[in-house]
Design a protein around this nucleic acid. Sequence first.
DNA 1: TTTAGGG
DNA 2: CCCTAAA
Length: 669
Amino acid sequence: MVLDKRLHYGFNGYQVPPMPRATRSARRRRSFKKKHEENKMCAFDLLAIVAGNLLLDKESAPSSSNTTADKNQCAAVNSNVKYEWQDEEKPLKVEACDHGSAARNFFVCGPSQVHGQGCSCKEPLVAQNNLNLRLASALTKSDWAGRSDAEKLGNDKSKNDMGTFARKVEGVSSEYREFGDCILEVETKRAVKDEPGRFGMVLSSNVANACSLEDPVVLDAKPPALASLDSSAKVPLCRNHIPNSSYPTNRDDVNVVSRDDDENSGCSHPITKKKFFRPAPRIGNRRIRKIMASKYWKVAPRFKDGTVSNPDGDLKPVFRKRKNYYRQQRSERLYPFKKRKHYAYSSPSNSYGGMSCNGDASGSCSRMHGVTGASSSFVSQHTSLQPRDSHGMRTFNGGASSSFVGQRTSFQPRDCHVKLRIKSFRVPELLVEIPRKFNCWLIEEDGYGGCDCYTWWWFTCWCTSSRKEDSPFLLQCDTPEPLSRCPPTADVVCQGICTGSPEPHVNNLGNYIESDHDSASSPADISMDKSTNSKALVAVPAMNVEALAVVPAHRNSKQSEIVQRRIRRPFSVAEVEALVQAVEKLGTGRWRDVKLRAFDNAKHRTYVDLKDKWKTLVHTARISPQQRRGEPVPQELLDRVLTTHAYWSQQQASQQLKPPQQAETCLLL
DNA sequence: TTTAGGG
DNA sequence: CCCTAAA
């Protein structure tokens, strides 16, 4: 099915409001900063993905299969793909070329998570709340197997507790994990917190082939699918690394064009390359999930020629397990995000053809928070978009009715279950318009030369404007200019953030879709599918169309209001018991000690939580049993609470009297 | 960072 | 649980 002609592509960025002048104290400033960093995180949560067949332009076939893409260079070429970096003054043009061998799917992802919170590699990826799931490397197992140890080790020989190898590049640690036939790189830790806002796109190919799905795939869109990474998975090493530093820095207009002419199934080839950046996590998550699925599908016959097999049988059971796992993991996280305020930007909903979303809660396929200015569109052949101004993005409004079946946009309860049905479609040409002021790097990651490989193209963009090195989050982006209209739409959402950019171009808040029961937030869902013939590759974004609708940014937007809120986790009786015991011993003014003593292993319980819990316990103990709610706490414990509280209160009172006495004593002596 | 309290 | 003033 050939669907839509256009794909509007837009960017969203979280706009940090100007710091109030009144905010003078360092604490206040830190608080402000922290808050917005978190907001930005949220903003990045939402990504959209677009997948489709990317037919390559034979004409542009690169002359060499070699990749020379220097980070600062203009082009990277491999046997099948060519990228070009043009002069700073010129738009970046990227062409994917293939010689009719492989139909490709591509994903376009939004901005990547920029800030990491120092997550440990020991933790499940799902726990890497703030990290990117970088679908960096995608190697086939065979490819992997064919590598020398040295290659596998790459730059970093360290091995983490998960049995995976990690590497650190630019302050980012990542590890390689095996998924199905692929080796994916997952970012596990980011040391550099203050990085420029970025946009990211990931173009992937051949996924469909790898998955070999005949029918549309219905996936449960679970958000932080990272969890899906099997921690036990054996991790291969990879040599691909993120190039160090030196990103180009002065491109204003970027025009990306992907064209395809062919549709076959084969596989595109791999390319070896560099990645300059980290793709959006969420997307990554989705992506990974999908890939994982393929792992189980392996049992199904796979054909390079594109023959399809239907793995459903195997897939479902697996997914169920995974699902639970995700849920469990997720619950450990801080998800979901709480939407304090959101911009209910809504725009006309688009109809997505070929993609349907079924949610447990009707209309709640996904939830997004503050989405603006993001849109994508598939552009009909040979159409190209050119940036028209320095800030917004241009979009095609005309005539593009997409055939995607969209999800509803309204914000839904977080516990929604999302299912996506993806159908295939072809995208003759893809043009991506990137706002000026953002530099972009096309990153190509690749798989390997086999049919099962995946090829990824990454895009990183960020403000060209100088940012404050020391205070990236202090933004003076208080008056963002309205984005150009981005038609509601689409499947691709790209977000970015403009940190410290004096001239915010993109505005907006983060948006994200939450699609799981337990909730974690999940951005766009991606899934791909494969059709019997190469022509029918599919990719789907799980975004909420309406949510993606572009909304002119308003100066008074409250994007900064989106805040994360931890999931509520009632204390169990056992925890109460432990708390009471600790407080009996330590008193009521040493919550940190209480934490260390009794909840050291409960990372989700902070000393503040314990203090709060004690407070509520005292309250609970004082009220009648009829007034109590929640899991009943044994009266015995409540009695101890009162006793303990009374005791320590008295102690504190007496302590306050002592100092003077002691002083007096000293004086007397 | 912790503590203490209001919300 | 959140938010913050205070220490």
